[in-house]
Simulated assay, not measured.
Amino acid sequence: MHKLQQAIAAKVRPVLAAHNGDIEVIEVTPDGFVKVKLTGACASCPGAQQTISEVVETALKEVCPELQGVIPVQQVSDDLINQALRLLRKDKIQA
């Protein structure tokens, strides 16, 4: 995990920071996958999947070639879920 954190700090974070984003490692699975969450502007970027494969996965596999891959985890905030529920419930009441 230490090598992964170093690679993220040195190679991934600077790229993401240039686009007002960042990355959070959620977990390293027993079968060799790294689950990550992009944050900031990168979280909602249309090119996020390309960033995961070309920047994140490439940098991490350089230091840990045994990794199977990188899995993006998209978490929706509770506030966004509550806003959506309010909209849905409002439409139901008016119908």
Rank of each mutant, 00 (worst) to 15 (best):
E54W: 14
A10V: 01
R13H: 00
Q94P: 01
Q74S: 06
R89A: 08
E54H: 15
K37Y: 01
S77R: 06
D79L: 15
L67F: 05
A7C: 08
K11F: 06
V34T: 15
E54G: 03
V76Q: 11
R13I: 03
K61E: 05
A95S: 14
G21W: 04
D91K: 15
N82V: 10
V36W: 04
A10E: 11
N82S: 10
P46N: 09
Q75C: 08
L80C: 04
Q94V: 08
L88H: 06
E24H: 13
A9S: 11
V63C: 05
V15N: 03
A17L: 10
V63L: 08
V73K: 02
L38R: 08
R13G: 00
I71N: 02
D78G: 03
L85F: 06
E24N: 11
V25S: 11
K35P: 05
Q83A: 10
V34S: 13
A84R: 06
F33T: 10
L67S: 02
V28E: 12
V55W: 02
L38M: 13
L60A: 01
S44P: 00
A95C: 07
C64T: 09
P46Y: 10
N82K: 14
G32T: 12
A17R: 15
L4W: 10
C45V: 06
R86I: 01
Q75L: 14
A48V: 03
G32W: 15
I93W: 03
H2K: 09
A18H: 13
P46K: 12
P30W: 11
T58Y: 09
D78C: 00
E24C: 05
R13N: 00
C45G: 04
V55N: 01
C64Q: 11
K11P: 00
I26K: 12
H19A: 14
M1C: 05
N20P: 00
Q75S: 12
Q50M: 14
L60H: 03
H2Y: 11
K3R: 11
V56Y: 10
V34F: 15
V76S: 07
D79Q: 15
A18C: 04
V34K: 14
A17M: 09
A9R: 12
D31I: 13
S77P: 01
V73R: 02
H2N: 14
N82T: 09
Q5H: 14
L80E: 10
V34C: 13
